[in-house]
Every structure is written in C-alpha cells, then in structure tokens.
C-alpha cells in the first residue's frame, strides 16, 4: 500500500506514534521502560471500559453511566471478596449483566435516547455505590494479590487480559452476525429495522457487553490497588469517551473497531503521562480531555459533512 493511503487508513495508529515520539522528545524519561510499563498498567483497567463503551457507540448509543457503574462494581467486588474471592469475581459480573440489561431495556422498550437514560442511571448507581459502602474498603490479601502480581515477560497478567479482551471484541464486531448488525444499526437504524435485524436485542446485548467490561475493569482495578472507593469511577465516563473518540469511533455510530479504541486509549494515556512527567498539574488533565473530545468530534463531523454535501443521486 502506498504511504499516503496507509496513513489515511491507519490515521489513529500514525497519530499515536507521532504523539509518542513528541512526548519522548520533550521528556527524556519517556523512553524509560518503567514509564512504558506504567502506561500499559494504567491503560489496562480503564481501557477495558473504553472498549466496552466503543461497542455501544458503534451501535449508535452512548453509556454515560460507566463511571458510576465502575464505582459500584469496585465496592461490590471488594465487599464480596471479604466473604470469598470467587464471589468477588462472580457477583460484579452478574450484577453487570443486570445493569446493562436495564440500560438496554430502558432504551429499547421506551425508545429513549441512551444519553439521557444513562445520565439518569449514572446518578442512580453513583448514589447506590455510596449507600452500599460509604467509605473505602480494603481487600484481604491472597488470591487477588497473586493475580495482580503475576507477570509474564515483565508485563503484568492483567495487561494481557486487556489485550485479550480487545481481540475478542474485535472478532465479535467483525465476524459475527451480531457485530455486523450492530454496524448496520449504528449507521442507518431504519434500514436495519426493515431488514428484520432485531435492533432491540443488539442494543441490549451491546449494553450488557459494555457493563461486563466495566465490571472486569473494576475487578482488575481493585486487585491491582487492593481497595475499592465508592467514588473511584467519577470522571471515568469522560476519559473513556475521550479514548473512544480518539480511537476513531464515530459518535454517530457505524464506524470504528475495538483495536482502534485500544489505540485511542494508548494515545490518551501517553498524552496524560507526558503531562505528568512534564510536571503539569493534575487539574489540567480535565481541560486536555475536554479539548481532545472537541477536536475528535469536529474531525469526525467534518468527515461526515463532506459526504453529505453532495446528495449524489446519480453517482454511478
């Protein structure tokens, strides 16, 4: 493939490399093995949430409640772990299925806008997390510590979990009937409806997948850190969405991929790490994220508009 074509089709990857190089140039510590490792570690937990979210966005919806659900899953997982390690694994996931199904049900049964609905559920789960566990809780050692400490080739196991999850979702999106239907649905809901695609089932399934990813992320986080906060997920929806958009998923749906989102997540984390190493105050991160979202949205809109400007009824 010619270079220009390559750049066009793999824009995100190219940008990631460029951003990485810029950071490395500005901050020499960047090329340090420890820095890269740190990036990977952080990316693993928040990244899983992002790829789950991207599945929802591809289907044409949005899930703003991921942050609150994350908080809830953290405290649930920790509390359950105090009873039994296995419960700490199973209960959040089962709960996640319920949460996702609820989101999906509300959106499909009442034909509501997923953004507003999840704005509501975000509040509900945030409050629930606080009620369930008003303070931070710690995890007893053993089982989870072992997992979080185990590493392969110097990279912790949970990072591999993240990449594995990304690959699984990528396959699901591109090779299965469900995945392809999701793309149709995102781009042209009416046509998908008429084609007999069960939009409701796809939407609910996409939301369940997203919530399960959030739960897995929460479990990984609590094992890594050893404790759970009831407000650990605050702002996560914001970061996750930034990563998803940076990864080239269109907010309108129908475009994107799990692997691209991984790139988006890496890109975001590289930028944030770069900022930290440059001693930029933590508070600036929010500003940067907001700006990145706006940039990504504008670029995406620009592409969509170029297509719409010419109705092209006769294009052959």
């Amino acid at each position: 493939m010619r270079p220009l074509q390559f750049i066009r089709s793999q824009t995100q990857l190219v940008i990631l490399v460029v951003v990485f190089l810029i950071c490395a140039a500005v901050v020499p510590e960047f090329l340090n093995e420890r820095t890269v490792l740190n990036i990977l570690k952080t990316v693993a937990t928040s990244g899983i949430v992002a790829i789950g979210l991207s599945v929802v966005v591809i289907g044409g919806n949005l899930d703003l409640s991921v942050g609150s659900v994350f908080s809830l899953m953290c405290v649930v997982s920790v509390k359950m772990q105090n009873t039994s390690p296995w419960l700490g694994l199973i209960v959040p996931i089962v709960l996640a299925v319920g949460v996702g199904a609820l989101n999906g049900f509300l959106v499909t049964r009442f034909r509501l806008n997923s953004i507003i609905v999840t704005l509501g559920t975000m509040s509900v789960w945030a409050g629930a997390a606080l009620l369930y566990s008003p303070t931070i809780m710690t995890v007893p050692g053993t089982f989870y510590e072992k997992i979080s400490n185990s590493a392969f080739l110097g990279i912790p196991t949970y990072v591999y979990v993240f990449f594995a999850a990304a690959i699984v979702l990528q396959v699901v999106l591109f090779k299965t009937k469900f995945g392809r239907s999701l793309f149709f649905q995102g781009v042209n809901p009416e046509a998908a409806e008429i084609a007999g695609i069960n939009k409701n089932r796809s939407t609910i399934l996409s939301m369940v997948i997203c919530s399960i990813c959030v739960a897995i992320g929460a479990i990984l986080q609590t094992s890594r850190v050893g404790s759970g906060y009831p407000i650990s997920g605050v702002g996560l929806e914001f970061s996750a969405l930034t990563a998803v958009l940076l990864g080239g998923v269109s907010i309108a749906g129908g475009k994107g991929s799990a692997l691209r989102t991984v790139i988006g997540v890496l890109m975001l984390q590289v930028i944030l790490t770069g900022m930290i190493l440059m001693d930029i105050k933590h508070d600036w991160q929010s500003i940067v994220k907001g700006a990145l979202i706006l940039v990504a949205l504008t670029l995406d809109a620009w592409q969509q508009r170029a297509a719409a400007r010419n109705p092209g009824g006769l294009a052959a």
């Binding site: 009937k177 392809r180 781009v187």
Partner: peptide, 27 residues
Amino acid sequence: VQVIPESTVAENIILDQLKNFASRGFI
C-alpha cells in the same frame, strides 16, 4: 428505497437470511 448504503450488494441481498450463510455465527 431501502438499502444499507455502507454495505455491499451481497450483504444487502442476504440481509433477511443471514443465518443461512452463517455457521456458528461466522458468515
């Protein structure tokens, strides 16, 4: 006119009967 513009001709034509061409979920 109901077609899915982003898809290929084949995808549009087999849309209603995807399961006939899918084995274990793969097309």
